[in-house]
């Protein structure tokens, strides 16, 4: 009798144990889409150059920035697909940090750059980050969903950030480009220091 009571109490305890109530179970159907969408957003080394690239594109004007809105997500997708073929490329970390420092510096300088150079930066950034995200896929990951999510996320974030930066620059007040340039100098400072740390510690990759 007592063992039954003990069993009932244990069962009751487990039933009442606090768990997170989730009405929408993202893991059941489109989970890997969300995983792909969120993966780049959880990495500051990716988000920083995305925002800096958006600001750089905004400084070049809406007409040029539209090209990047098209090119960047496609480069992300291509990079993700490349990760399926070349699973372990060297120097990706160093290149990523160079991009953080470089795009930040370009924003800080607010220098007008040719469209071809802007597109080249967007392509390299997209390919690299697509590759890094694609390489993070586990064998059980649905690759189509993951890469779709990553591409959609890249398109949405970059388009919104570029649009916001262009609208911000069009506002009244000479302080607006200065604020963006100051933000660029912050990103560049982060990139320079962490790149230095990376090279000093001789971290592989």
């Amino acid at each position: 009798m007592r063992s039954k009571l003990r069993l009932a109490l244990l069962a009751g305890a487990l039933t009442c144990a606090p768990t997170i109530a989730e009405a929408h179970l993202v893991d059941t159907r489109l989970g890997d889409f969300y995983a792909g969408a969120l993966h780049p957003l959880t990495d500051l080394e990716q988000i920083l150059p995305w925002i800096a690239l958006a600001a750089l594109a905004a400084f070049q004007g809406a007409e040029r920035a539209r090209w990047i809105v098209l090119v960047f997500p496609l480069a992300l997708l291509a990079g993700g697909l490349a990760a399926l073929v070349f699973p372990a490329l060297p120097f990706t970390s160093v290149l990523g940090l160079v991009l953080v420092a470089g795009t930040g510096l370009a924003v800080a300088l607010a220098a007008p750059i040719p469209l071809s150079a802007l597109v080249a930066v967007a392509v390299v950034t997209g390919l690299l980050h697509g590759y890094l995200n694609g390489a993070a896929m586990a064998p059980s990951t649905d690759r189509v969903l993951f890469l779709s999510g990553m591409t959609a996320s890249g398109y949405a974030v970059f388009t919104l950030a570029t649009g916001a930066a262009i609208a911000f620059l069009r506002g009244v007040g000479g302080w607006r480009p200065i604020a963006l340039r100051a933000g660029g100098s912050w990103v560049a400072a982060v990139g320079i220091m962490v790149l230095g740390l990376h090279l000093a510690m001789k971290v592989p990759g």
Partner: peptide
């Protein structure tokens, strides 16, 4: 100066940070 100094500062600070990182 109102924008040159605050934009220059983080960039030069990063170089100082590099010296610190390198020990």
């Amino acid at each position: 100066a109102i924008w040159v100094l605050p934009i220059t500062f983080p960039l030069v600070m990063a170089l100082g940070g590099l010296l610190g990182v390198l020990g």
